[in-house]
Write a protein that binds this DNA or RNA. Sequence first.
DNA 1: ACCTGAACACCGTTCAAGT
DNA 2: ACCTGAACACCGTTCAAGT
Lengths: 228, 228
Amino acid sequence: MTDEKAGPRSRRERPAKAALTRSGIVATAVELMRAEGLARVTMRRLAQELDTGAASLYVYVRNTAELHAAVLDELLGAVDLTPVKETGDWQARLTQVLQSYTAMLLDYPGLAQSALLARPSGKNYLRLIESLLALLSEGGVPKGQAGWGIDLLLQFATATAVEHAGSESAGEWQAAVDAVRTVSAETHPRLAEQGDDLFAGPGDARLEWGIRVLINGISSTPREGTSL
Amino acid sequence: MTDEKAGPRSRRERPAKAALTRSGIVATAVELMRAEGLARVTMRRLAQELDTGAASLYVYVRNTAELHAAVLDELLGAVDLTPVKETGDWQARLTQVLQSYTAMLLDYPGLAQSALLARPSGKNYLRLIESLLALLSEGGVPKGQAGWGIDLLLQFATATAVEHAGSESAGEWQAAVDAVRTVSAETHPRLAEQGDDLFAGPGDARLEWGIRVLINGISSTPREGTSL
DNA sequence: ACCTGAACACCGTTCAAGT
DNA sequence: ACCTGAACACCGTTCAAGT
């Protein structure tokens, strides 16, 4: 585009085939995921996008799992942390951050799975952890409980996204509902009684209730006396 | 082996190649998983074990996901539900059941992933749900909270197993620990302060604390007023 | 109805060889 | 040092054809 000043002889228009770099690879992977979903972000497909062979990527990325982890951290940059610096009920602000985190994962089915497997350690992940710790600290939650508690909160949000992601499940979900509905009141009295309510409710109400359950539990459950 | 009485002409010794049935397929899949791990339970590998072609399996099983779900329900039969009928602290008994569930999943890395995706609906899954509902009911937990609560409890146990399963992570986990340890106290004061404790503690102490957090939260968090 | 071979459209990862 | 083609060892799923 800025070609006029380019210099003598103009060096070959083409796709330019920018030199490979780790960050270039990751950026292309993010693009590809936005366009076609994480399932398509394979070493081979990505290499094709970068106009090279799959083998070349292994210079910059250990394997597919590491690639997906890098993509995840990139996306984590989009989580809205502004509630952290605001004033007002800390529980409500914590809930907002977690909802933003969950919404991001729900936009990219499949990525949530990586998040559960990956023990991420990128810079955006660290920012998120720091923010959650700050909020729990503001709420007066003892440090030990806060430290283990953020793991619970993130795990819950992530697992919720994984479940929804797996939902090509119009069918599979119906099967589960039907199975519960068909159950005999003799053998499964409580299941028969509660039935539908087990699955009822919009996802966001369940997410919000779950977050409240965790905040309450984390705040009120000491870590000592861990021996049942 | 009981060949003497077998009948006239003895019908071809060989592997016998028992006719395909859904339950035979699932049983073989379970065997194969125990021997080689879930990753090896593929349509092609399983077909090979059954001395047929992969295409033949599609008469009995919709796809790989359904196959894995069937294997999961089979394994769910091994969860120890005896604490349900005993007497004594309901919370302790609930914890025992969940620990048994988690231990089973930890034995078979990869299966936990299916559990999170699968919305299972097999008979052993229904028994488990019924048992958990019974215990929460015994504890006087309101029905609405109990119904949504079991989802939280199972999701937590399952997600914990998924995380540990992903742990070929001697390396990946170290990377995460190091990342937190290297963090600047300027930009991430709480992370720098808490540091190691985030990752500390044996898995079972964390599991047990998590279960307690959830039980406490579920018991004390009403479902109405779900609007933050 | 059930079973099959063959095909289609893919994978991750390694490695010897080149530049 | 970086990059590549080719190879190895696999996948899930469909479908026409057979029994």
